[in-house]
């Protein structure tokens, strides 16, 4: 830079090497860098979920249509969910478990959202349909395989879930998560991502 720095060069001492040209270089690079970063942001952000994708993030389900002992499977934004109508025996099984022995301790009530009046409907269990191990969709009543604990069985690597969707055996670390859902009436639930 020195050969361009006529003024400060001759002044010598404190300002040696610092020139208007250096300032312009730094300013230009800063502006270009800032511009590149500002441009990168929309290019990065467009990769995220678009507004219409985000808008499709909840669904209403009429739980009275789910047959006793059976389940329905729904996709919300491509994510699978199970809505299961449990029999009394299945509810009892879920309640009789000693919670402290579980890998991911949760009581059955922890896994049910209350209705508007504060009571819970233990017959209807809503869970994610994505195995907490590597995301396979476990098989259940419709496929005729319930696993060793009467709930779901993940055929990918052998995870067994109980009638409350809690992990009991196999490699999965956590219970099938319960999504956000609310009773909008006695028989309609609204599930959101």
């Amino acid at each position: 830079m020195a050969e361009h720095g006529s003024d400060s060069q001759s002044a010598g001492g404190a300002h040696a090497g610092e020139t208007r040209r250096d300032f312009i270089h730094i300013a230009a690079v800063t502006v270009a860098g800032g511009g590149a970063a500002a441009l990168a942001w929309p290019f990065l952000q467009q990769l995220g979920p678009a507004a219409d994708t985000r808008a499709l993030s909840s669904t209403e389900v009429d739980v009275s249509k789910v047959p006793l002992g059976g389940e329905i499977r729904i996709l919300i934004g491509g994510m699978p969910f199970f809505v299961r109508h449990r029999t009394d025996a299945e509810i009892q099984d879920a309640r009789n478990v000693d919670v402290s022995t579980l890998r991911d301790p949760q009581t059955d009530d922890d896994r049910l959202q209350p209705k508007a009046d504060g009571t819970r409907n233990p017959a209807i269990l809503v869970t994610s349909g994505s195995c907490t191990h590597l995301g396979c969709v476990p098989v259940g009543p419709a496929q005729g395989t319930l696993g060793d604990f009467g709930g779901w069985y993940c055929p990918c690597h052998g995870s067994h879930y109980d009638t409350s969707g809690r992990i009991r055996k196999g490699p999965a670390p956590l219970n099938l998560p319960v999504p956000k859902y609310e009773y909008t009436s006695d028989s309609i639930i609204k599930i959101s991502l």
């Binding site: 995220g48 979920p49 934004g77």
Partner: peptide, 13 residues
Amino acid sequence: KTYLMGGPAIGDP
């Protein structure tokens, strides 16, 4: 993961 998939799960995006 979300930025790779462009949504909550593998889909059109």
